[in-house]
Amino acid sequence: MLNITLYLLQRVSAAMMVPFVLVHLVVMIIAVNGGLTATEILSRTQGSLVWMLFYGGFVIAVSIHAAIGVRVIAYEWFGLNGRWLSVFTWTVGALLLFTGLQAVHAVTATPL
């Protein structure tokens, strides 16, 4: 149930995620190593455009990649087909994008 367009989108989003995952893990380990509190972390991320773009891009890549991956599982294992398969794919993608961007906003936007 993958055509060339979906295949390319999934490969490109996977390639995008490689640096995102590596930086995310390394920074997380280094940051927590010294015993940072949540408040201290938020004080560094809130208002930071760099972290907003970084995690915003991460969330977009994840939403595309996961929606297509789950689409294949839904088709091959649960027989979801046709229009409902498209609806399902878009719903998964939109849900991940919405919740992910909400989290990015909470962590990186300047608090009121």
Partner: peptide
Amino acid sequence: VSGSSGCHN
């Protein structure tokens, strides 16, 4: 081979 039943599956 590029359609929805093609090689990318």
